[in-house]
Amino acid sequence: MLKNCLTATAIAISFGGTAVAQDYPVKSVTLVTHSSPGAGGDVFLRELAKALSPVLGVNVVVENITGGSGATAMAHIAKAPKDGSILYGTTPTFIYTSLLSDPEYSYKDLDPVVNVFEDPEMIFTSAKGPFKTLEDAMTKARESRGTWGAANPASLERQSMEMLKTASGVNAAVVTHEGGGDMMINVLNGTLDIGVGEMQELKSQVEAGQVRILAALTAERVADYPDIPTVKELGYDVAVRKFRGIAGPKDLPADVIAAWEAAIPQVLAKPEFKTWYETNSLRPDFMPQSQYRNFINGFADQTSDFLRSAGVTQ
């Protein structure tokens, strides 16, 4: 154990030594996540930090600022120095919290920097259950009543299920839970017909043959699973994009933005980082700032419409 600690330190030192690939205005970057240690958003930032350090030529550390479903972290970032030293790991949560809770500092007080990944959302069912295709589940919902699960009430997963319900016009109860684990149990024991979840959460159950993936909610087929059709192909005009990227305080200097826009494609091409994100079924989805800004604004508008039409907000 001690030996490993020493090796890790040695690697960290050697990173520092070989640095100076680009001129980043500050020596150390803190990436803030609202996730607790070990959660999806946290693991993503920690892996990114490891791969990014030598490319940006700076020390990259991760800090967990939990609380208020991301509101605390957003306030921290909005008030942070505008020099690229403190940035934020984005997920759809920061949009949802901004719209649902009207916190003092919202996504509007931050500025998107770059996007890095898409976490593909999949529709799945129990392998022991009667549904072989998405259409089987839809037929049941059309003829009697479907039970569809989503991990959390205020989430992209629920939104995608509600969108599917609207697009298909079937009769289904969209049942929300306290996290993906609760929902998985209800899919496995047959309480729910189908559920929606990120590929990386489902992987283990898929490999064990407990869960069958019916369709992808992505715009295009997922590279690792070329046989799984998208929901769009199956005739329902629904696709969502669960993004994982970086945002910062407003008015960041141009050289910081340029450094990130140059660094992310390089990081994504690194073999060891590639192995990590491919095993976790993350799809590289690089967007430079101008594109990412438009995307975030569009995403927020769509979500805001959804929350109003679902009666969550007025």
């Binding site: 609380g67 809770s101 003092e104 959390n152 009430p153």
Partner: peptide, 19 residues
């Protein structure tokens, strides 16, 4: 947060009460 709809309940605009 309301467990079914996801709206805020009795938080009085205070984001510390969301959880």
């Amino acid at each position: 947060t309301d467990p079914v709809t996801g709206s805020n309940r009795f938080t009085f605009g205070n984001s510390d009460l969301l959880g």
